[in-house]
């Protein structure tokens, strides 16, 4: 297993946003994630790559405790967000998810208006005191989601009426509207065409200035394009985690090399 401890010493404690220690995930009897240790930096795009079923999405869903919604899933080990263990019994997953936003594989806007889609999070978290503030939050979120120009004249139109790429950017806008600190993206471009993908990738690069972004992707090109750090998962193990440039040029583990050169996966 690749040792992240040495790398960590080079970084100051402030740069680490999330650190996972000995994380194990079981789906019933199936041991899906085996002993994962990883430190995810702030204001960085971290990509999780690996073949299907390697556990990268499962691990991603541990970071905002979405696995809690699956009855048979069991998580062991610690995941620290800013030094606090998110699996501490005192932590309410609902509060956690306000801090750690998520964008899903398939665009899943609510069947409501574009405005209501974005305003929903701020509303339930009480981020706006009045309509004017809410309007402002919605506008800012849509601008960050790089979709403001396209929808500003039809905020009352249903979000489900947008094209696939627009829907995904709306979902990103919805996720950033609650002012999260970390943004998790589970294969956000897998349902999109190349043009929409390019738009979303550009957006991810911009989001890096404010958030720690973790993206799961099947496309190694995408990982190479958008991320600064890359983690390679294989059969539930974190095989290698390093700077993206290094992973794609001089991987240390033979499995990583096989995967990025297309021999396994």
């Amino acid at each position: 297993m690749y040792d992240t401890q040495n790398k960590e010493s080079a970084l100051s404690q402030d740069d680490i946003k999330i650190s996972a220690r000995n994380v194990q995930v079981y789906y019933g009897d199936n041991h899906a994630i085996k002993d994962v240790n990883v430190d995810i930096e702030d204001k960085t795009v971290t990509a999780f790559i690996g073949p299907s079923g390697c556990g990268k999405s499962t691990f991603l869903r541990c970071i905002n405790r979405m696995n809690d919604t699956i009855d048979v899933a069991r998580v062991e080990g610690d995941i620290l967000l800013d030094g606090e263990n998110i699996y501490d019994p005192k932590v309410d997953p609902v509060q956690l998810r306000a801090k750690v936003g998520m964008v899903f594989q398939k665009p899943n806007p609510f069947p409501k208006s574009i405005y209501d889609n974005v305003a929903y999070g701020p509303r339930i978290h009480g981020l706006a005191r009045n309509k004017a503030e809410l309007d402002e939050i919605v506008e800012r979120a849509l601008k960050r989601g790089a979709i403001w120009e396209e929808v500003k004249d039809r905020l009352t139109a249903p979000g489900t009426g947008l094209s696939g790429g627009q829907q995904q950017r709306l979902c990103i806008a919805r996720a950033v509207a609650t002012e999260p600190e970390v943004l998790l993206m589970d294969e956000p471009c897998s349902a999109l065409d190349p043009i929409a993908t390019a738009q979303v990738e550009e957006l991810i690069d911009e989001l890096r200035q404010n958030y720690s972004v973790v993206i799961v992707t099947h496309s190694m090109q995408q990982a190479a394009r958008v991320s600064q750090k890359t983690a390679f998962f294989h059969l539930g193990n974190l095989v290698e985690y390093d700077d993206t440039d290094k992973i794609f040029t001089q991987p240390e583990d033979p499995r990583t090399e096989s995967y990025i050169t297309g021999r396994i996966g």
Partner: peptide
């Protein structure tokens, strides 16, 4: 109701009950 709607609501930090009653 597609589970993606529940995920979407939980993902923006809605509680289980909010996800059910709002969406």
């Amino acid at each position: 109701v597609p589970p993606s709607i529940r995920d979407a609501a939980l993902g923006v930090g809605a509680s289980k009950m909010q996800a059910v009653f709002h969406h």
